[in-house]
Amino acid sequence: MKKMKKVLSLAMISAMTISLLAGCGKKEGSKETGSSADTIKIAVAAPMTGDNAEYGQGFLNAANMMAEEWNAKGGVLGKQIDIVPYDDKNSSEEAATIAQKIVSSKDIIGVIGHFASGVCMTAAPVYNENNIIEISPSASHKDYSGIGDYIFRNNTVISTEAKASLDIAVNDFGKKNIGIISIKTDWGTGTAQVIKDLATELEGDGVKIVAHEEVVEGSDDYSPAITKLNEAGADVVICAGMYNLVAPVAKQYKRVNPDIKIVGFSNAYSQQLIELGGEDVEGVGFPVIFFSGSEDPTIQAYVEKYKGKFGNEPSALTSQAYDSVGMLLTAIQEAGTTDSAKVREALTGVQYPGVAGDTKFDENGDVQKEFVKVTIENGKFVQMK
C-alpha cells in the first residue's frame, strides 16, 4: 500500500507550477525505467561547478564508489550500474531543466540529489509526476518529502539539526546570548526562524536571541553583520550556512572578539572549512550524523577507501549520498525489477546499515538519526567531549 504523504504547502504549489510549465505530464501507472540491455542508470544531480561544487563532487564520488562496489559483485539484476552526472550549479532554474531532461530520457531509475532544499523542491514535482525516485542526501526543509510518494531524503529535517546546534551553543559552550547569521536563501531564512522558535522554549533558562543578520552567500565582507551581532552582545553565533560562510565569519569575527564561540551545521563539516579558516575555526562546533574519525571498523574502512580514491575524507553529506545509492540499489534488488512503483514500495521497507547510521524511511520519506557533536582541535575534526 502506498504511504500517505503530507499535504502540500503553498510553497509546493509554486514548485508544482514550475514543473508543469516545464511540460511534464503524469504517467499512467508505472513502468520499467532506468534499465537498458546491460546497465541500470542512476542520475546524480547536484552542483558540480560553482561555489558549492565540493558538495556535488562529493555526491558523485560517493555514488561512483558505491556503484563500483556493486558492479564488482555482479551489479544488480545481472546488470551493471551506470552513474550519470548532471550539474545543476545549485540553481533552481538549472535544476528544472535537468529534471525535465532526466524524465524525458526514460532510462534513469532514480536521482540522487539535488543539494539545496530550494533546488530540490523545484525539481521534485517533476520527478514525482513522472514516477522517478528522488533521494536527496541533503535537503532539510520540512516540506520537501511531502511533495509526493517518490520523494525521499536521507537527511534529518532541519528542526532536528537546529535543536542539536542550539544544544551545543547552550549546553556545551555554556552561552545564553545567541546571535544568528544566515545566508539569504530559502534554507538560510527558514533555518534561522527554526532556531528562533526553538530558543523561545529556553527563555525560562535565560537563553535569548540577541540579533539575527542575513547575508548574501559568497560575500567576502561580513563585517557589517558581525558589528551588529557583537554590539548586541552575542557570546555565541550560530551560522546557518555552508563552510564558505562559517570560515570567513570565524576569521572576521575573531578580529573583533577573539572569545566568540561559533556553531555551524553539518553542511559546514568539510575539510574545506579547515583549509579556508585555519586557526580561526579552531573550536567551532557542529552536529553531524557521520563522523570520519569514528572508531567503528566499517566506517574506518570506508573513510580509508574514499581517501585513497579521492584524496580527502568524505563529509557527512557525501556519506549520506553513498548510503542513498546503496539503499536504492538494495530496493531494486529486493523488488527484482526496475518497475518504478515496485522499487518505490521496496524502498519504503529497506532497513539499511549505512556508514551514516542505520537508516529506514518513514511514511513521509524521512529518516531519524543520531547526531555526533564535532569540533576542530589542532587543525583536525574531533568528537566533542
Rank of each mutant, 00 (worst) to 15 (best):
G326P: 02
G29S: 15
E304R: 15
L21G: 12
E370F: 04
D143Y: 02
V382L: 01
Q368L: 10
Y150A: 05
S36Y: 13
V157T: 09
V325R: 10
G218A: 03
E69G: 09
E282W: 04
T338I: 09
I18A: 11
K73G: 12
N378V: 11
P47S: 10
P224L: 13
K373Q: 13
L77C: 02
G285L: 13
D280L: 09
D87Y: 03
I18C: 13
A164T: 02
A45F: 02
T375Y: 05
I132R: 05
M16K: 15
G326Y: 06
E275T: 05
A268N: 08
G188M: 03
Y144T: 02
N131R: 01
I98L: 08
I13C: 14
K369L: 13
D87S: 14
S138E: 08
Y322E: 06
N378I: 09
E275P: 06
T49N: 04
Y322V: 05
Q351K: 15
G58T: 04
N312R: 15
D82I: 01
N378K: 09
A335W: 03
D362V: 07
F59I: 09
S294G: 06
A341W: 00
A356L: 03
V303G: 00
S223W: 02
I299F: 04
I132N: 04
P297H: 09
M242L: 15
A45I: 11
E214H: 02
